[in-house]
Nucleic acid binder design. Structure first.
Lengths: 144, 144
DNA sequence: CTTGACCTTAGAGTCAACTCTAAGCTTATA
DNA sequence: TATAAGCTTAGAGTTGACTCTAAGGTCAAG
């Protein structure tokens, strides 16, 4: 049985974060001492690790809540539910990557166009491009 | 001279957002009517467009504030300052892309491993991978 | 028995970039 | 002249995931 500081040390999550996750229904200390101190057993620790792994992959806490509800009763849930969640996350990630790659392209074009030297910015091609808004013609739509 | 709603229509930014940008020192209406209504002249509009362009590229409002301070006095600033800002942003974008690509890989591996069918999740390989935390061995470190 | 480290809670603060609300003027139209 | 549309401000709310604070209870060591 681990106290919160011990679980914190072991998991790398702060005690604050562990309590925060508890408040949001993700994890729990299955026992409490008389004084109310949290005690985590092995199953609790495994659940925390599950959360950590899912979070590292990029799942939101809401996603993780769903995954956990599947985890505690696997018989009542299908593989499809799990892949749906995963696919949905992948779609989000892909969309974000595309958006960032568009920014990346634009920024590279800007950097290529400018000397970057110590001369004053009166004729800086980056400033000109921003002023004219014509970057869009080269690398389009970094919109939200 | 444009009223705020006209500039809003023209720029695609809401009147709320225009006031918000003003509050944060990014833009300004150079004139006000007797009653206090904002009126934007051509230079104001160009500044708003500059902000919009920079924001579309992915610059933060803080970055944009810096770019604007260069813009109003180009003679006192160097091309290097501009490229430094741009390079810094590009580095951020690149880092974010790498992080997301790592998530992407992991999610693809997970999806490949699971049947995604209507059978119950008792032996779902995604759930197992999350439980064992061993996804990290294949696709590493999606950390913040 | 005191010191200090650790634990508890409710609730506030942080970040970014908006987004919205309330309460009250102003302006244009019918 | 009345109504509706549009403008003003200060300030609060939103989102997500923490992060921290205050005020106080607990526990082990010396």
């Amino acid at each position: 049985m681990l106290k919160i500081s011990e679980l914190s040390a072991q998991s790398g999550l702060s005690a604050h974060t562990l309590r925060f996750y508890e408040k949001h229904g993700l994890i729990n200390a299955s026992t409490r001492s008389e004084a109310g101190y949290r005690f985590y057993n092995e199953a609790d620790v495994r659940r925390v690790e599950f959360v950590k792994t899912a979070r590292n992959i990029g799942f939101s806490l809401d996603d993780i809540a769903q995954l956990l509800s599947i985890r505690v009763d696997k018989k009542s849930h299908s593989c499809q539910e799990v892949t749906d969640l995963t696919q949905h996350k992948l779609n989000e990630v892909n969309a974000k990557i595309e958006e960032l790659q568009s920014m990346q392209q634009t920024l590279e074009i800007l950097l290529d166009s400018c000397c970057g030297g110590p001369e004053n910015a009166t004729h800086c091609s980056i400033m000109e491009a921003l002023d004219e808004g014509d970057i869009r013609d080269k690398a389009r739509s970094n919109k939200k």
